[in-house]
Deep mutational scan, measured.
Amino acid sequence: MPSETPQAEVGPTGCPHRSGPHSAKGSLEKGSPEDKEAKEPLWIRPDAPSRCTWQLGRPASESPHHHTAPAKSPKILPDILKKIGDTPMVRINKIGKKFGLKCELLAKCEFFNAGGSVKDRISLRMIEDAERDGTLKPGDTIIEPTSGNTGIGLALAAAVRGYRCIIVMPEKMSSEKVDVLRALGAEIVRTPTNARFDSPESHVGVAWRLKNEIPNSHILDQYRNASNPLAHYDTTADEILQQCDGKLDMLVASVGTGGTITGIARKLKEKCPGCRIIGVDPEGSILAEPEELNQTEQTTYEVEGIGYDFIPTVLDRTVVDKWFKSNDEEAFTFARMLIAQEGLLCGGSAGSTVAVAVKAAQELQEGQRCVVILPDSVRNYMTKFLSDRWMLQKGFLKEEDLTEKKPWWWHLRVQELGLSAPLTVLPTITCGHTIEILREKGFDQAPVVDEAGVILGMVTLGNMLSSLLAGKVQPSDQVGKVIYKQFKQIRLTDTLGRLSHILEMDHFALVV
């Protein structure tokens, strides 16, 4: 994948999101292997301009796509893939009243899908469409860049269908997702969380590099694949309309690839034109409109599966009536509230959605109805927002919020430890010299600072030695090549209790 991002070429006709291997024109390309080798690009942008032909009021008969309808489940399912879809609609009884809503608040519980998330729908649909058009064949390999849930859905379907599955996901995604993927037989590649989507090191860039190296491999490409919004247009939206008897006044959905909100909203605009569509985008993402909503100094966020630093091709923002931004604290607070007060075992993005819903639905009156999409299960986040310690460490809970008995030293300040200034190293000294210094002084790690004293990161003896043994660096290389740029900081005025929580999850903390 090139470091400079080429513009994806656009073909003359058809839909841009065809499933299957992508040609340089962004659509299915038939021909000899030699032709494909000559024409197939190194990668295709996940934010390529959409060429979708959908228009409100256009006859369904003019759609270029294969459409399906929700099917009634048999008493005995032939395999677990038949437990994807037909998820329950559940009334939220307490939270709406707590925040003064007059309307009825309903939750579409997508964590009841077989793999635990709304992404099971698009995973199965992308595979079925690729099999139907002859792209996927027995023994082929599926590769997908994902925040985890699409990966789980694909790995689940691949396990049943017999495909090899490789999932490329950023490091910030939970260990629970990784464990589930491994249990399903998927191979996992992790990428830096802070890598831009168009960087060769991003999950998108690495996935395309693997595709170019592995024979008979395919990126189904949830960011561009029409099967993504079509899955929701054909099934999720129809289920909502049936469950609500066609009567709903507002739908609120958090947005990642945009397939969920695009597919549902398009069908609702056709069948229930008075329904307002509300999009939820986390602070630090750029999906919301108008652009002024996205202006923030924050560039990272903890909530998973929603928000991006690019506009995915499948996201149709014209069908969203209003956007709201959400933050991590309210997302996790509301997710825990949904679990504790409503018994809905949902993930953090569901918290984002409901946090926005109780604001947006203030305009609705008694007798009206708001539906929220709860995308995934708490299963993926047992060591994250479900953990009091994690919430404390991230600053989303305060010590006084917890009532468990603490040891005698818990409320003492870090400054009472009488710490001395640490050994520091410059980023320009060599790895070999740094190892000598650390061994001589008896230290395992040291902060790396520039000549102005600005902290650049941390270097550890173990990481340097393993990097040297693996051949990633040489003793003569500058130590700046092996620094940890993500590390926890703590102030002298913070409590030892807070430091204790940090050290339970990290090997060190830097006192500043």
Rank of each mutant, 00 (worst) to 15 (best):
P6L: 12
Q7V: 13
Q7S: 06
A8W: 02
C15G: 08
C15D: 11
P16W: 02
H17K: 02
H17Y: 14
R18C: 06
S19I: 08
H22E: 13
S27T: 13
L28F: 02
P33Y: 09
E34I: 02
K36A: 10
E37P: 15
E37A: 07
P41Q: 09
L42V: 02
L42N: 02
R45Q: 09
A48E: 06
S50C: 02
C52S: 15
A60P: 02
H66N: 08
H67V: 12
T68I: 13
P70S: 14
I76N: 12
L77G: 07
I80L: 05
L81Y: 02
G85V: 12
R91Y: 11
I92S: 09
K94C: 14
G96V: 02
G96Y: 07
K97P: 07
K98I: 14
E104L: 02
E104I: 07
E104W: 06
E110C: 02
A114F: 02
I122L: 02
E128T: 09
E128N: 08
R132I: 06
D133F: 02
G134S: 14
K137S: 05
P138I: 07
S147V: 02
G148F: 08
G153R: 02
A155T: 10
R161L: 02
G162D: 12
I166Y: 08
I166W: 02
K172S: 07
M173W: 02
S174R: 02
S174W: 05
V178R: 15
R182H: 08
L184F: 05
E187C: 10
T191C: 09
T191Q: 02
T191P: 04
E201S: 13
V204C: 10
G205Q: 15
V206A: 08
R209A: 08
R209E: 10
I214Y: 11
D221F: 09
Y223P: 08
N225C: 05
S227R: 06
N228P: 05
P229H: 02
H232Y: 05
Y233E: 04
D234V: 02
D234M: 10
L241T: 02
D245G: 13
G246F: 02
L248R: 02
L248N: 02
A253F: 06
G256E: 02
T257P: 06
T257G: 02
T260Y: 02
K267A: 13
K267G: 08
K271L: 09
K271A: 09
P273C: 13
